[in-house]
Simulated scan of single mutants.
Amino acid sequence: MNKEEFKHRDRLLKAISENGHYRIIVVKTTEIVRTARNNHNLSLLPTVLLGRTLTAALLLASNLKGEERIQIKLQGNGPVGSVTAEATSHGEVRGYVASPDAALDLANNEKLGDGIGIGLMTVSKVLYNKARPVTGTVDLVRGNVNEDLAHYLLQSEQVPSAVSLDVALDEHGDVAHAGGVLVQAMPGAEQEETERIENNIRHMPQIGEQLQSTYLDGILATVSEGMPVRELDRYPVDFFCRCSRERFQKSLALVNPDDLLKMNAETEELVCHYCGERYEFSGEEIEAIAHKAKLRQN
Protein backbone atom coordinates (compact mmCIF):
# COMPACT_ATOMS: atom_id res chain seq x y z
CA MET A 1 0.00 0.00 0.00
CA ASN A 2 1.52 3.31 -1.10
CA LYS A 3 1.21 6.60 0.75
CA GLU A 4 -1.80 7.81 -1.27
CA GLU A 5 -3.67 4.52 -0.83
CA PHE A 6 -2.96 4.53 2.90
CA LYS A 7 -4.21 8.10 3.16
CA HIS A 8 -7.55 7.16 1.59
CA ARG A 9 -8.00 3.63 2.98
CA ASP A 10 -11.21 2.50 4.65
CA ARG A 11 -11.66 4.46 7.87
CA LEU A 12 -14.29 5.66 10.30
CA LEU A 13 -14.59 9.24 11.52
CA LYS A 14 -16.54 10.23 14.62
CA ALA A 15 -17.53 13.82 15.33
CA ILE A 16 -19.89 15.80 17.51
CA SER A 17 -21.49 19.20 17.07
CA GLU A 18 -19.89 21.93 19.16
CA ASN A 19 -23.09 22.29 21.17
CA GLY A 20 -23.21 18.54 21.83
CA HIS A 21 -26.60 18.11 20.20
CA TYR A 22 -25.58 15.78 17.34
CA ARG A 23 -23.28 12.81 16.93
CA ILE A 24 -22.05 12.30 13.37
CA ILE A 25 -20.26 9.18 12.15
CA VAL A 26 -18.86 8.76 8.64
CA VAL A 27 -17.26 5.59 7.32
CA LYS A 28 -15.64 4.47 4.06
CA THR A 29 -16.03 0.73 3.39
CA THR A 30 -15.01 0.29 -0.25
CA GLU A 31 -12.30 -2.35 0.31
CA ILE A 32 -14.40 -4.07 2.95
CA VAL A 33 -17.27 -4.60 0.51
CA ARG A 34 -14.88 -5.72 -2.24
CA THR A 35 -13.33 -8.26 0.13
CA ALA A 36 -16.73 -9.55 1.23
CA ARG A 37 -17.82 -9.94 -2.38
CA ASN A 38 -14.66 -11.82 -3.35
CA ASN A 39 -14.66 -14.04 -0.26
CA HIS A 40 -18.27 -15.11 -0.72
CA ASN A 41 -18.45 -14.92 -4.54
CA LEU A 42 -21.50 -12.65 -4.38
CA SER A 43 -23.76 -11.60 -7.22
CA LEU A 44 -24.80 -7.93 -7.50
CA LEU A 45 -27.87 -8.00 -5.24
CA PRO A 46 -26.21 -9.67 -2.21
CA THR A 47 -23.14 -7.44 -2.70
CA VAL A 48 -25.19 -4.27 -2.22
CA LEU A 49 -27.28 -5.59 0.66
CA LEU A 50 -24.35 -7.14 2.54
CA GLY A 51 -22.22 -4.06 1.82
CA ARG A 52 -24.83 -1.78 3.36
CA THR A 53 -25.25 -4.08 6.36
CA LEU A 54 -21.49 -4.28 6.98
CA THR A 55 -21.36 -0.49 6.81
CA ALA A 56 -24.30 -0.16 9.20
CA ALA A 57 -22.67 -2.55 11.69
CA LEU A 58 -19.48 -0.47 11.75
CA LEU A 59 -21.46 2.72 12.32
CA LEU A 60 -23.29 1.24 15.31
CA ALA A 61 -20.20 -0.50 16.70
CA SER A 62 -18.34 2.81 16.85
CA ASN A 63 -20.30 3.62 20.03
CA LEU A 64 -19.21 0.42 21.80
CA LYS A 65 -16.20 -0.16 24.07
CA GLY A 66 -13.24 -2.54 23.90
CA GLU A 67 -14.24 -6.07 22.92
CA GLU A 68 -17.97 -5.34 22.88
CA ARG A 69 -19.56 -6.24 19.57
CA ILE A 70 -22.77 -5.84 17.62
CA GLN A 71 -24.59 -8.06 15.16
CA ILE A 72 -27.19 -6.95 12.63
CA LYS A 73 -29.37 -9.54 10.91
CA LEU A 74 -32.03 -8.92 8.30
CA GLN A 75 -34.18 -11.93 7.51
CA GLY A 76 -37.12 -12.11 5.12
CA ASN A 77 -38.99 -13.97 2.41
CA GLY A 78 -37.00 -12.52 -0.51
CA PRO A 79 -34.46 -14.35 -2.68
CA VAL A 80 -31.49 -13.31 -0.51
CA GLY A 81 -33.09 -14.89 2.55
CA SER A 82 -30.95 -13.27 5.24
CA VAL A 83 -28.01 -10.90 5.65
CA THR A 84 -25.78 -10.94 8.72
CA ALA A 85 -22.98 -8.59 9.77
CA GLU A 86 -20.96 -8.40 12.98
CA ALA A 87 -18.61 -5.58 14.02
CA THR A 88 -16.48 -4.42 16.95
CA SER A 89 -15.41 -0.99 18.14
CA HIS A 90 -11.90 -1.81 16.89
CA GLY A 91 -13.07 -1.47 13.29
CA GLU A 92 -13.33 -5.20 12.60
CA VAL A 93 -16.34 -6.32 10.59
CA ARG A 94 -17.42 -9.57 8.94
CA GLY A 95 -20.62 -10.91 7.43
CA TYR A 96 -22.40 -13.19 5.00
CA VAL A 97 -25.68 -13.78 3.15
CA ALA A 98 -27.81 -16.91 2.99
CA SER A 99 -28.00 -16.93 -0.83
CA PRO A 100 -24.80 -15.51 -2.41
CA ASP A 101 -26.08 -15.81 -5.99
CA ALA A 102 -29.56 -14.31 -5.46
CA ALA A 103 -30.98 -11.93 -8.06
CA LEU A 104 -34.03 -9.73 -8.56
CA ASP A 105 -36.83 -10.48 -11.00
CA LEU A 106 -36.50 -7.33 -13.11
CA ALA A 107 -39.39 -8.43 -15.33
CA ASN A 108 -41.69 -7.90 -12.35
CA ASN A 109 -40.08 -4.55 -11.47
CA GLU A 110 -38.61 -5.82 -8.22
CA LYS A 111 -36.52 -3.28 -6.29
CA LEU A 112 -33.55 -3.59 -3.93
CA GLY A 113 -35.75 -4.02 -0.87
CA ASP A 114 -37.45 -7.03 -2.48
CA GLY A 115 -34.14 -8.87 -2.16
CA ILE A 116 -34.83 -9.48 1.52
CA GLY A 117 -38.58 -8.95 1.28
CA ILE A 118 -40.98 -8.94 4.21
CA GLY A 119 -39.26 -9.81 7.45
CA LEU A 120 -37.39 -8.64 10.52
CA MET A 121 -34.26 -6.75 11.52
CA THR A 122 -32.58 -7.96 14.69
CA VAL A 123 -29.74 -6.09 16.39
CA SER A 124 -27.81 -7.85 19.18
CA LYS A 125 -25.12 -6.26 21.36
CA VAL A 126 -22.64 -8.13 23.51
CA LEU A 127 -21.85 -5.64 26.31
CA TYR A 128 -19.50 -5.74 29.29
CA ASN A 129 -22.17 -5.05 31.90
CA LYS A 130 -24.73 -7.53 30.57
CA ALA A 131 -24.68 -11.29 31.16
CA ARG A 132 -26.63 -11.88 27.96
CA PRO A 133 -26.71 -10.06 24.61
CA VAL A 134 -29.06 -7.07 24.47
CA THR A 135 -31.36 -7.71 21.53
CA GLY A 136 -33.95 -5.63 19.70
CA THR A 137 -36.15 -6.68 16.78
CA VAL A 138 -38.32 -4.61 14.43
CA ASP A 139 -40.24 -5.25 11.25
CA LEU A 140 -38.43 -4.37 8.05
CA VAL A 141 -39.67 -1.09 6.61
CA ARG A 142 -38.12 -1.21 3.14
CA GLY A 143 -35.57 -4.03 3.22
CA ASN A 144 -32.90 -1.69 1.83
CA VAL A 145 -31.09 -1.38 5.22
CA ASN A 146 -31.17 2.47 5.17
CA GLU A 147 -34.73 3.05 6.37
CA ASP A 148 -34.69 -0.18 8.35
CA LEU A 149 -31.74 0.92 10.48
CA ALA A 150 -33.25 4.36 11.13
CA HIS A 151 -36.54 2.68 12.08
CA TYR A 152 -34.76 0.33 14.47
CA LEU A 153 -32.87 3.14 16.20
CA LEU A 154 -36.07 5.12 16.71
CA GLN A 155 -38.26 2.20 17.81
CA SER A 156 -35.83 0.13 19.89
CA GLU A 157 -33.41 2.76 21.21
CA GLN A 158 -35.58 5.89 21.00
CA VAL A 159 -32.81 7.77 19.20
CA PRO A 160 -33.93 9.94 16.23
CA SER A 161 -31.37 9.13 13.52
CA ALA A 162 -30.62 9.92 9.90
CA VAL A 163 -28.91 7.14 7.95
CA SER A 164 -27.32 7.08 4.51
CA LEU A 165 -25.66 3.85 3.31
CA ASP A 166 -24.37 3.33 -0.21
CA VAL A 167 -22.62 0.71 -2.33
CA ALA A 168 -21.89 2.18 -5.76
CA LEU A 169 -21.17 -0.19 -8.67
CA ASP A 170 -19.33 0.76 -11.86
CA GLU A 171 -20.34 -0.08 -15.43
CA HIS A 172 -18.74 -3.53 -15.08
CA GLY A 173 -20.67 -4.36 -11.92
CA ASP A 174 -17.62 -4.02 -9.70
CA VAL A 175 -17.67 -2.16 -6.37
CA ALA A 176 -16.55 1.40 -7.12
CA HIS A 177 -17.15 3.03 -3.73
CA ALA A 178 -18.97 2.21 -0.50
CA GLY A 179 -19.61 4.02 2.75
CA GLY A 180 -22.17 5.49 5.07
CA VAL A 181 -23.22 8.26 7.43
CA LEU A 182 -25.11 8.11 10.71
CA VAL A 183 -26.38 11.27 12.44
CA GLN A 184 -28.03 10.93 15.85
CA ALA A 185 -29.82 13.61 17.80
CA MET A 186 -28.73 13.94 21.43
CA PRO A 187 -30.69 15.46 24.34
CA GLY A 188 -31.14 19.17 23.81
CA ALA A 189 -31.32 19.01 20.01
CA GLU A 190 -33.54 21.75 18.61
CA GLN A 191 -36.03 21.46 15.78
CA GLU A 192 -34.34 24.10 13.63
CA GLU A 193 -30.98 22.31 13.90
CA THR A 194 -32.54 18.97 13.06
CA GLU A 195 -34.27 20.37 9.99
CA ARG A 196 -30.96 21.87 8.80
CA ILE A 197 -29.13 18.54 9.05
CA GLU A 198 -32.02 16.63 7.48
CA ASN A 199 -32.00 19.10 4.61
CA ASN A 200 -28.22 18.69 4.20
CA ILE A 201 -28.55 14.91 3.99
CA ARG A 202 -31.60 15.05 1.73
CA HIS A 203 -29.86 17.21 -0.86
CA MET A 204 -26.33 15.80 -0.72
CA PRO A 205 -25.10 13.37 -3.42
CA GLN A 206 -24.99 9.66 -2.66
CA ILE A 207 -22.03 8.60 -0.49
CA GLY A 208 -20.51 6.61 -3.36
CA GLU A 209 -20.64 9.66 -5.61
CA GLN A 210 -19.01 11.86 -2.98
CA LEU A 211 -16.20 9.36 -2.43
CA GLN A 212 -15.18 9.77 -6.06
CA SER A 213 -13.85 13.25 -5.32
CA THR A 214 -13.63 13.65 -1.54
CA TYR A 215 -12.83 11.75 1.64
CA LEU A 216 -14.47 11.44 5.06
CA ASP A 217 -13.75 15.03 6.04
CA GLY A 218 -15.51 16.35 2.95
CA ILE A 219 -18.59 14.22 3.61
CA LEU A 220 -18.64 15.36 7.25
CA ALA A 221 -18.51 18.98 6.09
CA THR A 222 -21.43 18.41 3.72
CA VAL A 223 -23.57 16.72 6.38
CA SER A 224 -22.83 19.33 9.06
CA GLU A 225 -22.94 22.44 6.83
CA GLY A 226 -24.02 25.42 8.92
CA MET A 227 -23.11 23.71 12.20
CA PRO A 228 -19.62 23.73 13.83
CA VAL A 229 -18.34 20.23 14.67
CA ARG A 230 -15.24 18.74 16.24
CA GLU A 231 -13.60 15.40 15.57
CA LEU A 232 -13.71 12.79 18.34
CA ASP A 233 -11.91 9.83 16.80
CA ARG A 234 -10.63 8.37 13.55
CA TYR A 235 -9.44 4.81 12.93
CA PRO A 236 -9.04 2.25 10.12
CA VAL A 237 -11.72 -0.37 9.47
CA ASP A 238 -11.28 -3.77 7.81
CA PHE A 239 -13.10 -6.92 6.84
CA PHE A 240 -11.62 -9.19 9.49
CA CYS A 241 -12.63 -12.54 10.97
CA ARG A 242 -11.12 -14.11 14.06
CA CYS A 243 -11.82 -17.64 12.90
CA SER A 244 -8.87 -20.02 12.93
CA ARG A 245 -8.06 -23.67 12.43
CA GLU A 246 -7.70 -24.01 16.21
CA ARG A 247 -11.20 -22.67 16.80
CA PHE A 248 -12.70 -25.07 14.29
CA GLN A 249 -10.78 -27.90 15.92
CA LYS A 250 -12.30 -26.97 19.28
CA SER A 251 -15.74 -26.93 17.66
CA LEU A 252 -15.20 -30.43 16.29
CA ALA A 253 -14.28 -31.56 19.79
CA LEU A 254 -17.79 -30.58 20.93
CA VAL A 255 -19.43 -32.91 18.41
CA ASN A 256 -20.53 -36.33 19.62
CA PRO A 257 -17.38 -38.49 19.14
CA ASP A 258 -19.43 -41.38 17.71
CA ASP A 259 -20.76 -39.04 15.02
CA LEU A 260 -17.22 -37.94 14.20
CA LEU A 261 -16.07 -41.55 13.81
CA LYS A 262 -19.05 -42.28 11.52
CA MET A 263 -17.84 -39.59 9.10
CA ASN A 264 -15.04 -41.96 8.02
CA ALA A 265 -13.75 -39.38 5.52
CA GLU A 266 -10.24 -38.95 4.24
CA THR A 267 -10.56 -35.17 4.47
CA GLU A 268 -13.29 -32.97 5.94
CA GLU A 269 -13.54 -29.33 4.85
CA LEU A 270 -15.11 -26.81 7.20
CA VAL A 271 -16.06 -23.34 5.98
CA CYS A 272 -16.46 -20.19 8.08
CA HIS A 273 -19.85 -18.64 7.26
CA TYR A 274 -18.61 -15.15 8.12
CA CYS A 275 -15.50 -14.91 5.95
CA GLY A 276 -15.52 -17.92 3.63
CA GLU A 277 -12.18 -19.26 4.90
CA ARG A 278 -11.83 -23.01 4.44
CA TYR A 279 -10.12 -25.40 6.86
CA GLU A 280 -9.30 -29.01 6.04
CA PHE A 281 -9.02 -31.82 8.60
CA SER A 282 -7.70 -35.23 7.64
CA GLY A 283 -9.44 -38.43 8.61
CA GLU A 284 -6.65 -39.14 11.07
CA GLU A 285 -7.08 -35.75 12.73
CA ILE A 286 -10.85 -36.21 13.08
CA GLU A 287 -10.33 -39.70 14.52
CA ALA A 288 -7.82 -38.33 17.05
CA ILE A 289 -10.26 -35.57 18.07
CA ALA A 290 -13.02 -38.16 18.53
CA HIS A 291 -10.82 -40.43 20.68
CA LYS A 292 -9.77 -37.50 22.92
CA ALA A 293 -13.43 -36.57 23.33
CA LYS A 294 -14.25 -40.15 24.34
CA LEU A 295 -11.49 -40.11 26.94
CA ARG A 296 -12.93 -36.95 28.47
CA GLN A 297 -16.32 -38.63 28.74
CA ASN A 298 -14.93 -41.61 30.68
Rank of each mutant, 00 (worst) to 15 (best):
M1I: 09
M1E: 12
H8C: 08
L12S: 10
A15N: 06
I16H: 01
G20D: 08
E31D: 15
A36V: 00
L49G: 00
L60E: 09
I72C: 08
V80T: 11
G81Q: 10
H90N: 13
E92F: 13
A102R: 07
N109P: 01
L120F: 08
M121V: 14
L127Y: 01
Y128M: 10
R132L: 15
T135Q: 04
V138G: 04
N144S: 15
V145A: 12
H151G: 04
L153M: 15
L153W: 09
Q155M: 11
G173R: 10
H177K: 11
G180C: 09
G180N: 09
L182E: 05
V183T: 05
A189F: 12
A189P: 04
Q191H: 14
I197Y: 00
R202D: 09
Q206T: 11
Q210I: 09
Y215F: 10
V223A: 00
S224Y: 00
M227T: 07
E231R: 06
L232Y: 02
C241T: 07
C243P: 02
K250G: 09
L252A: 03
L254Q: 12
D259H: 07
L260V: 03
L260F: 01
C275K: 01
S282F: 00
A288R: 08
K292M: 03
A293P: 00
K294A: 00
